[in-house]
Amino acid sequence: MYEFDWSSIPGALPFLWEGMKVSLEITLSAVIFGIVWGTALAMMRLSPVKPLSWFAAGYVNLFRAIPLVMVLLWFFLIVPQVLRGAFNLDPNTDVRLTSAMIGFALFESAYYSEIIRAGIQSVPKGQVSAASALGMSYAQAMRLVVLPQAFRNMVPLLLTQAIVLFQDTSLVYVSALADFFGAAYKVGDRDGRLVELLLFAGLVYFLICFAASQLVRRYQKKLNAHVAH
C-alpha cells in the first residue's frame, strides 16, 4: 500500500503561489483581451460587409478546429521570433510568458466571439427596429440597446468560459513555464513526491473552479429570477 507523505507541500507553498500568480495573470489577460477582441469578431461576423464576416468566420473556425496544445506550440515557435525581430531583444530574454499570454488571448477570443455572437442574436430583432424607429444609427442601436441586453444574458457564460480558461492555462506545461501546475509538478519531481503534489494540485484546482462555478450558478439564478419578474 502506498504511504503518503505530504511534508514537502508546506515548504513549497511560496513557490506554488508564484505559480498560481502566473496562472491567474494568463487567465486575466486572456479574459480581458478575449472579450474585447471576441466582441469585435462577433460584430464583424454579423456585419453585412462580406469580407469582414468571412475573415471573422475563418478566424473563429480555424482556432476552434485546432487543439489548444497545438496553438500554444505555434505561439512558442513564432512569437519569440517576431518579438525579437521587432524589438531587437536579446535572444536570451524569456518571452515564454508573453507568448503564452498572446496565444491564450487569440485562442480564447474565438470561443468568446461565439458566445457573444449567440448573445447578440438572442436579442429580438424588433429591438433594432425599435431603436432605428427612434432615429438611432446602427452603431448606436448596437451600443445602447443590443449589446447591454446581450451582455447581461451572456455574463454567466462568459464567466464559465473564464473558469474553463483558467483550467486550460495548465497546458503552458508544454513550454515548461512554471504556472501553478508546472510549479506543483516541479516540486513533486524534485522531492520524489509526485503523487502527493499532483493530488494537491487537483484539489486546489477543484476547490477554486467549483467555488467559482457555484458563484456563477447563483448569479445565473438571480438573473433568471430578475428576468421572470
Binding site: 503523487v195 499532483l198 493530488l199 484546482y205 477543484f206 473552479c209 462555478s213
Partner: peptide, 24 residues
C-alpha cells in the same frame, strides 16, 4: 462536478502517475 472542475492535464497526470501507485 469532479470531472468538470479539474483541468484535463491534471486529470491525465493523476490517471497516469498517481493511480498506478495507489491502486489496492
Amino acid at each position: 462536478e469532479i470531472f468538470r472542475n479539474i483541468p484535463l492535464l491534471v486529470q491525465l497526470f493523476i490517471w497516469y502517475f498517481v493511480l498506478p501507485e495507489v491502486l489496492p
